[in-house]
Nucleic acid binder design. Structure first.
Lengths: 184, 184
DNA sequence: TAGATTGTTAATCGATTAACAATC
DNA sequence: TAGATTGTTAATCGATTAACAATC
């Protein structure tokens, strides 16, 4: 596929995504039928469809809790904007960090989190704190109306059913790799 | 479950892990039968079994590639040691970072990666670089004999079948949350 | 024995794959 | 028309759940 191509086949998409072509067609059919038989999918059209279905046509504002290395790394990460995510706040419990500038944002106090979420209409919270603080942070986020949480702390959060939580735990990932290692 | 309990039931484990009790029993039965009917599982015994099966009785040495915020965050992360992972090196392509101390490790040059991996018997590589550098880094790791890679860069790596790759992509996670948001 | 909880089977569910008619 | 590739169906596979006999 030349970089200038405007069409691409399920085979090409599969190659790039590391899955099978059948998988790609099946999944894309879920969006409705936007491919052309004998030709493939129009890339721009497809991107627009996906953005639409994933709710990425709206901007989602994100609050990062925890201004340690991880919180800073995420705040500096440029890959979010293209997908409609805007980091609107970074807060920390440590007074020493207040006012530090991270990617154009001042670190604000954890106690202001509730007000910040409401004022700036933040819909997603990212928890980048030590595990011991994670549940408290989740409670604060939910108390302010946040229904979507990305939890990077290695704990299972207690949350009601209407709150979506994604957990990313690097130790678990390493554990899976170690398992494979042991089997070779 | 009191913190001092030495036994716990599949129900209690399920509660803590956020899954069902049936799931827990099914999965644990894969390790062999180590529970006691009417009583539960012995925690210490279970931990030892899991460590054994996951290959965590051996120490696995890890190399971090990329000494940006993310690489530093991981190097500073204390949660790995308990599971037998030892961060043995952190390398970066940027000369300005060489010699910087991160959690007791000096940042070393990317070009030394191959030699470092072989000298220190590193078995796992963590890629914390910008996406453009990720494939090159993966090739270097594999060239030095690494068969397990944790890829934090938002690209799909081209790797042979005998190499295990885990990919963690925060944008994807946010995308999933956005999808749920759009549905509420 | 009575109560509790495992280990395992069978049923269910959902996701992946293969195959091919439809059609550009 | 001939070639290519989608969209969809049916088959397969694997994972989850429910249920309960085994047994501490």
């Amino acid at each position: 596929m030349a970089p200038t191509a405007t069409q691409c086949s399920s085979d090409q998409i599969a190659e790039g995504a590391g899955v099978t072509a059948a998988q790609v067609r099946k999944d894309l059919s879920f969006l409705g039928s936007h491919g052309t038989r004998g030709v493939g999918y129009d890339i721009d059209d497809l991107m627009a469809q996906i953005r639409e279905v994933l709710g990425m046509t709206r901007i989602h504002r994100v609050a990062i809790v925890g201004a340690g290395n991880l919180g800073e790394a995420i705040t500096n990460y440029r890959g979010f904007e293209n997908w409609g995510f805007e980091i609107a706040a970074i807060v920390d419990v440590d007074d020493a960090k207040l006012g530090t500038l991270v990617n154009g944002l001042f670190v604000e106090p954890l106690d202001a989190l509730g007000a910040i979420v409401e004022d700036r209409e933040i819909s997603i919270g990212i928890i980048a704190t030590p595990p011991s603080a994670a549940q408290d942070v989740a409670d604060r986020l939910m108390g302010a109306g946040v229904k979507s949480i990305l939890n990077l702390a290695p704990v299972v959060l207690k949350t009601p059913e209407d709150v979506s939580v994604r957990r990313v735990d690097l130790s678990t990932e390493l554990g899976i790799l170690a398992y494979h290692l042991a089997r070779v």
